[in-house]
Amino acid sequence: MQSRVNEIDLLRFIAALAVVFFHYAFRGHAADHLSNLPYPLLAPLAKYGYLGVELFFMISGFVILMTASNANVKSFVISRISRLYPAFWIACTLTFAVTVYLGAPRFKASFSEYLGNMTMLGEFFGINALDGSYWSLFIELRFYLLIFLLLVLKKIHHAETFLIVWLVISFVLEIKPVAALETLFITDYAAFFIAGATCFLIWAESLSLKKFLMLLSAWALSEYEVLSSLPSLEKHYQTTFNRFTIIGIVSSFFLILLLIAQRWTGLLARKRWLVLGALTYPLYLIHQNIGYILFDQLYPGVNPHLLFWGTLGVMLGLAYSIYVVLEKPLANKLHQFLTQILKVNARDQNNNSLNSVN
Rank of each mutant, 00 (worst) to 15 (best):
residue 156 I to L: 14
residue 150 L to C: 11
residue 295 F to W: 02
residue 179 A to G: 03
residue 299 Y to R: 12
residue 304 P to W: 01
residue 132 G to S: 13
residue 3 S to K: 14
residue 270 R to Q: 11
residue 9 D to V: 02
residue 102 L to Q: 00
residue 22 F to H: 12
residue 153 L to S: 13
residue 319 A to S: 14
residue 157 H to W: 13
residue 140 E to A: 06
residue 16 A to K: 05
residue 1 M to C: 03
residue 127 I to Y: 02
residue 217 S to V: 07
residue 21 F to A: 12
residue 123 E to N: 15
residue 331 A to Y: 06
residue 107 F to N: 10
residue 289 N to R: 13
residue 21 F to L: 15
residue 71 A to I: 03
residue 190 A to C: 10
residue 95 T to W: 02
residue 67 T to F: 09
residue 312 L to T: 05
residue 13 F to P: 03
residue 191 A to W: 08
residue 147 I to W: 04
residue 33 H to E: 11
residue 66 M to D: 07
residue 204 A to I: 01
residue 282 P to C: 04
residue 83 R to M: 04
residue 45 L to M: 11
residue 3 S to T: 10
residue 27 R to V: 07
residue 317 G to R: 00
residue 348 D to H: 14
residue 177 P to N: 09
residue 306 L to W: 09
residue 78 I to W: 04
residue 23 H to I: 02
residue 331 A to V: 06
residue 111 F to G: 10
residue 46 A to L: 08
residue 21 F to K: 08
residue 201 L to A: 09
residue 211 K to W: 08
residue 306 L to C: 03
residue 113 E to R: 03
residue 135 W to R: 05
residue 96 F to M: 02
residue 138 F to P: 00
residue 317 G to F: 01
residue 156 I to M: 15
residue 177 P to A: 11
residue 107 F to L: 06
residue 339 T to E: 10
residue 158 H to L: 13
residue 72 N to E: 12
residue 212 F to W: 13
residue 56 F to G: 06
residue 266 G to K: 13
residue 217 S to R: 05
residue 38 P to M: 02
residue 339 T to M: 01
residue 255 L to Q: 03
residue 308 F to Y: 11
residue 109 A to F: 04
residue 136 S to W: 02
residue 41 L to T: 14
residue 304 P to D: 09
residue 167 L to A: 00
residue 233 L to D: 03
residue 115 L to T: 06
residue 311 T to G: 05
residue 273 W to D: 10
residue 249 I to K: 00
residue 200 F to N: 11
residue 196 G to A: 13
residue 286 I to L: 11
residue 320 Y to T: 14
residue 239 T to Y: 03
residue 80 R to T: 05
residue 233 L to M: 12
residue 37 L to Q: 09
residue 217 S to T: 14
residue 20 V to P: 01
residue 198 T to W: 07
residue 223 E to Y: 00
residue 323 Y to C: 01
residue 222 S to Y: 01
residue 176 K to C: 10
residue 128 N to K: 15
residue 264 W to F: 01
residue 76 F to M: 10
residue 150 L to Y: 08
residue 330 L to R: 00
residue 294 L to G: 02
residue 172 V to K: 00
residue 166 W to P: 08
residue 236 H to V: 00
residue 312 L to R: 04
residue 224 Y to T: 09
residue 258 L to A: 03
residue 82 S to G: 08
residue 42 L to Q: 06
residue 296 D to N: 15
residue 208 S to I: 01
residue 313 G to N: 01
residue 341 I to H: 12
residue 310 G to V: 14
residue 65 L to K: 02
residue 238 Q to E: 10
residue 153 L to F: 13
residue 276 L to G: 06
residue 137 L to E: 06
residue 112 S to N: 12
residue 113 E to N: 14
residue 214 M to C: 12
residue 193 F to H: 07
residue 222 S to W: 01
residue 96 F to T: 02
residue 333 K to R: 15
residue 270 R to Y: 03
residue 9 D to F: 04
residue 336 Q to H: 08
residue 77 V to T: 07
residue 160 E to V: 06
residue 18 A to M: 15
residue 242 N to Y: 10
residue 130 L to P: 11
residue 52 G to M: 08
residue 66 M to C: 04
residue 44 P to E: 08
residue 307 L to Q: 08
residue 39 Y to T: 08
residue 51 L to P: 01
residue 138 F to Q: 14
residue 71 A to N: 14
residue 68 A to D: 07
residue 304 P to R: 15
residue 51 L to K: 01
residue 127 I to R: 05
residue 89 W to Y: 11
residue 109 A to H: 13
